[in-house]
């Protein structure tokens, strides 16, 4: 696959209260961004089980984006902290699995940050494009 034609497939888990609302705001503001992220809505970023991340990679995602409320703003008080800790360990584990940890990204996007959501999506899409297809997706082993 050439770099030109490679369109990263990114699964996004967005919390209902901040980030999903932020993504909606990008829409109502008609802020344009890349169509590579497929959003799955969850009530809280704390709902994002590491299992979902691994499942997404297993099914061929080139990247996984998790977005939740800024620290202190969680609709459920502390769900985002749990996610931050989980994803920190997940990143270390992805490294052990030989998967570039940059393929997993955790971002805080508030309901007022439509432009920021668009920026995050664009930036992540380009970073993943540079990284190329997921080794799981492409099935490339190190042998």
């Amino acid at each position: 696959m050439t770099e030109e034609s490679f369109e990263p497939k990114i699964v996004g888990f967005l919390c209902n209260w901040c980030s999903y609302a932020g993504a909606d705001l990008a829409g109502t503001s008609r802020t344009k961004y890349k169509p590579n992220v497929r959003v799955i809505r969850v009530m809280c970023s704390g709902r994002v089980d590491p299992l979902f991340v691994l499942k997404a990679f297993e099914k061929g995602a080139d990247g996984v984006l998790i977005a939740g409320c800024h620290p202190g703003d969680c609709h459920y008080m502390s769900g985002n902290y749990k996610t931050r800790r989980r994803m920190e360990l997940m990143r270390r584990m992805l490294e052990q699995f030989g998967i570039n940890p940059e393929r997993l990204r955790l971002e805080w996007v508030s309901a007022a940050e439509g432009a920021r959501f668009a920026h995050v999506v664009n930036d992540m899409t380009e970073k993943i494009r540079e990284l190329g297809p997921s080794p799981i997706n492409g099935g490339a082993t190190d042998e």
Partner: peptide, 11 residues
């Protein structure tokens, strides 16, 4: 038998 099964090579 985990989801990812093994080490990959992500250059």
């Amino acid at each position: 038998t985990s989801f990812l099964k093994r080490r990959y090579n992500d250059e």
